[in-house]
Design a protein around this nucleic acid. Sequence first.
DNA 1: CGTAGTCTTGAGTATCCTCAACGAGGGTGG
DNA 2: CCACCCTCGTTGAGGATACTCAAGACTACG
Lengths: 231, 231
Amino acid sequence: MNQKTAAPIMPSRDQAIGAVGRAQPAKVLDTVAAVRRYHRGQEICGQQTPVEHWYRVLAGVARKCTVRADGRRQIVDLLLPGDCFGFATQSRHAFAVEAVADGTTVACYPRQRAENLADTDARVAREIREMIFDAITRLQRQVLILGRPTALERVGSFLLYMAARSAPASVDRIDLQVSRYDIADYLALSSETVSRALTDLKFRGAIRFASTRQLNIVDRSVLDDEDETAA
Amino acid sequence: MNQKTAAPIMPSRDQAIGAVGRAQPAKVLDTVAAVRRYHRGQEICGQQTPVEHWYRVLAGVARKCTVRADGRRQIVDLLLPGDCFGFATQSRHAFAVEAVADGTTVACYPRQRAENLADTDARVAREIREMIFDAITRLQRQVLILGRPTALERVGSFLLYMAARSAPASVDRIDLQVSRYDIADYLALSSETVSRALTDLKFRGAIRFASTRQLNIVDRSVLDDEDETAA
DNA sequence: CGTAGTCTTGAGTATCCTCAACGAGGGTGG
DNA sequence: CCACCCTCGTTGAGGATACTCAAGACTACG
């Protein structure tokens, strides 16, 4: 259940990390990284466990989430290649992180060694700051999405967000990779409402489905500003 | 309208910064800080302006917010004494920050100088990391609050959040300092709904009002687990 | 080919938003 | 000192939206 494929990295660059295209690689920091591979649903770091590592997604998708008292799950961050997580002032993780896609690969930086490295190498410290800034940007974006009043707007801005994050080149092609349930828990909606919003957007000509989780954006203006419907 | 009371800080500690009780002071960094004072509603840093400074709230309250195309405002962070803001990878601020309370005081760190200081002094780098970690923690908390399905739960968890943030000692006394409109824009609700939720919580015996914006928590269990109402 | 997980669609109910009116304070100026 | 105005806060009524419960279709995989 919990067998993780741990592979320590040589000081020389590892091709797994070098293979990450869109992410700005944390070059110096990678000398202390270990790469691990997870299968779908596997826990990468558990809630309430000690903060001993910082992480960076190399491939696949992961979700940072928590389960409320009423059994509802809230996803607090959707982690794509290049995204870092595991930062906290507290001694224990406030959230669990789980692999969403099968074969999700994560670089794992021992916190103490990373901090020490940052103390001696200013470049590392800057790299770490950049990583955290990005995490803030993602969270702020999520707050904006959650702040949308209607389900249609939430789903629409989520799609635009995913489009912006997926590939810089073909920005209109989205490979969601996550289930409707995950989207629902990210957007704080029920999965039925997510499904309805997506079919609604399809009939409005905003999106076109290649498969259940792959779609193309046809008309961005519909996704962008749902308030125009009132006009 | 825009006259800011700028006061450069001497290398020796400034009493304004030393006076901050609950915040862990960024000691070394304060040597390059300037303290500014703002009145209610005044803009501390504008949206789309270049990122030239990092900031820390010394006294008062500020809100980080944006205005959507439809005219709605979304508050992305509520900044209390000790909170830092202004971090971004982008060159321009994605959000505006405005003073909520009159006389809100902010320490202002020139970004370039702060970065340079961080490069030469590892303690500064750590201080900065801590500041950003705290910002992440606040944002994650906000996502959790926004993820609550009902208005009653959102307002309830918001009150608990504010209680936890206000004073470590008397955790049951809350001085909101912000208007119902601000709460509404923070929680992505209408101000009417916020008002209704508060009176509802009052009649349920969860809170008691000393004045419009000052209240005491009487029964925490009502605030944190609204799902019990179903039982 | 069956099974489990995922996705969609439907019907009814609860919740929230909008529009509206009114009350309460806090300034300001006469 | 009082009247006035303005912002803020509360409460009500009606309509729109999302949730819950439910059932059925599709997909992947053993």
